[in-house]
């Protein structure tokens, strides 16, 4: 299902540019994220996907960008991370932070608004972690990579954000758990969260309505995720080799 002209943008990126050190990483990204839809941003390693998510979230080192970011029509350019988060923007990190001593319970409660203990337990169950086993474990290096990703997702589920970027939600996740994560995303969507996947995976891409293909810090194609998926899988070359936009193959948005 591709958006119609009546669809409302929750997030608009306007000619976003960013340098890190002496490298130009984002090269003028313009993008509309529609409220209520599931989007995917795909691209090869180093295309700039995580950098884009970090810039939207406002992480340190990613604040000095060119262009603008509008959330529900208002610029968030000057806002701190927590101000952006309180507006409803969040990010599930590609490699989630590990803490020392902090309990899963206290971590997932951090973003939840006055959630009951039962609610916290339910969120863990939903992402496939048994509360009796995980609630009081530390969010530290003793959690496996996949477990840590699931804890991250539980935290986002409890936060009920308006817009969530999930950076490679399937990395380190077993096949069965991926299906569960897709169910969690449906839940999120049902509660009004607009989801943006960042991914290389065809399975994840297929969950999205609309996809953006990122290459060398540029959006080189966008459209129905099925078409982008096919192109990404079969034809995607190192960027610069072929420019699909130039071939006139884009979908109307």
């Amino acid at each position: 299902m591709t958006g119609k002209k009546t669809d409302k943008s929750i997030l608009e990126l306007r000619d976003l540019t960013l340098r890190l050190g002496d490298r130009q990483i984002l090269n003028g990204i313009t993008m509309d994220i529609w409220e209520g839809h599931v989007h995917a941003i795909v691209g090869t390693n180093g295309a700039g996907k995580s950098t884009l998510a970090s810039t939207i979230m406002g992480l340190a080192g990613y604040r000095d960008f060119g262009g603008d970011i509008l959330f529900r029509g208002e610029s968030i350019k000057r806002m701190n991370i927590d101000e952006r988060a309180r507006l409803g923007i969040t990010l599930a990190w590609q490699e989630p932070a590990r803490f020392e001593g902090l309990k899963v319970r206290d971590f997932i409660a951090a973003g939840a608004k006055n959630e009951s203990e039962a609610g916290l337990a339910h969120a863990l169950e939903t992402v496939g972690l048994r509360p009796d086993e995980f609630m009081y474990r530390a969010v530290d290096k003793t959690l496996s990579g996949g477990e840590r990703k699931k804890v991250e997702l539980a935290s986002i589920l409890l936060m009920k954000p308006g817009l969530a970027f999930l950076d490679e939600p399937d990395s380190g996740i077993d096949i069965d758990s991926i299906q569960r994560i897709f169910r969690v995303v449906k839940l999120l969507r049902g509660e009004g969260t607009t989801v943006v996947f960042i991914t290389h995976s065809k399975a994840v891409l297929e969950q999205a309505d609309h996809a953006f293909l990122l290459c060398g810090g540029r959006v080189v194609d966008q459209g129905k995720s099925a078409r982008i998926s096919k192109y990404f899988e079969n034809e995607c070359m190192p960027c610069g080799v072929r420019d699909p936009l130039a071939r006139g193959e884009t979908d109307e948005r």
């Binding site: 979230m57 992480l59 309180r86 932070a97 902090l102 951090a110």
Partner: peptide, 25 residues
């Protein structure tokens, strides 16, 4: 760690308290 908690809506002071309390627990 700080940015992770802030991306869930905590301000910097709250977030660093949560991290310190975790470390000292």
């Amino acid at each position: 760690q700080l940015e992770t908690l802030m991306s869930r809506g905590m301000d910097e002071d709250e977030a660093s308290e949560v991290i310190i309390q975790g470390l000292l627990s």
